[in-house]
Design a binder for these strands. Sequence first.
DNA 1: CTGAATCCGGATCGATACTG
DNA 2: CAGTATCGATCCGGATTCAG
Lengths: 138, 138
Amino acid sequence: MSAGHTAVTTTPPVVSCGEAHEDCGIREVLDRIGDKWSVLVVVELAQGVRRFRELQRAVPGISQRMLTLTVRRLERDGLLTRTVHPTVPPQVDYELTPIGHSLTHLVKALADWSAQHRDALARARHHFDAAHPDADIR
Amino acid sequence: MSAGHTAVTTTPPVVSCGEAHEDCGIREVLDRIGDKWSVLVVVELAQGVRRFRELQRAVPGISQRMLTLTVRRLERDGLLTRTVHPTVPPQVDYELTPIGHSLTHLVKALADWSAQHRDALARARHHFDAAHPDADIR
DNA sequence: CTGAATCCGGATCGATACTG
DNA sequence: CAGTATCGATCCGGATTCAG
């Protein structure tokens, strides 16, 4: 056990993945809802049952392909149910499961945080860009 | 087990982006912390001040390039500060700003949700994969 | 209406080598 | 130690077309 230098770390650990950062499970969540469309679909479904077209209209910009993939993945993870009505023309209803609904609370926390710090973030970014005109960050 | 669903018909709109889904600001947040490494870096920095190498060791798997890009972006958004000590060899300290710290609460919510539903998600996925062996979702 | 299949451009990420 | 630069693989996502 080589002593080495003792790092100064006395900060109230709001988050700590057990002892090691070990990922916790944060990555798991973000891998699921961190994509471009999942949360938007979840937000819309938080309002109630939606059909495929309704979802597509409610989430402007999403392509059929992406909507299909998104709802399929959400279904796979048990966050929503997919109900096919054997009618013609076909009708498919999507609805959040209880777990999916519990996720909306998380999304709300995200939205709240965003609303609260949006201005500060924008200012910080503007300040940084002014100080580093030729930064290749973005 | 009480039979019959207790008809949660009227679900309280936990999240709703005003009238239109209009994105709220959820996408903004996810565009920032939804990437592969940001939250892991934030989690590590939640423990205290860290140097570049310390961060890299604390987040196994991250490359120098990705760590550099990640901390630069976080700095740009005002989530952390970067302090260069004019010593030799060079030493650079990274530390969360108050805003960055406030983000850790959000991350904790994510971790909690993940821990709480991880099993259910895994079961749902397993069940789905068994029912759809040839689904091209993943 | 709902969705599958295909093609393709861009973004992301990792590995490696080099610098101060 | 703390980066920067370059390259290539991979993935994500959009547009289009076809099908039940």
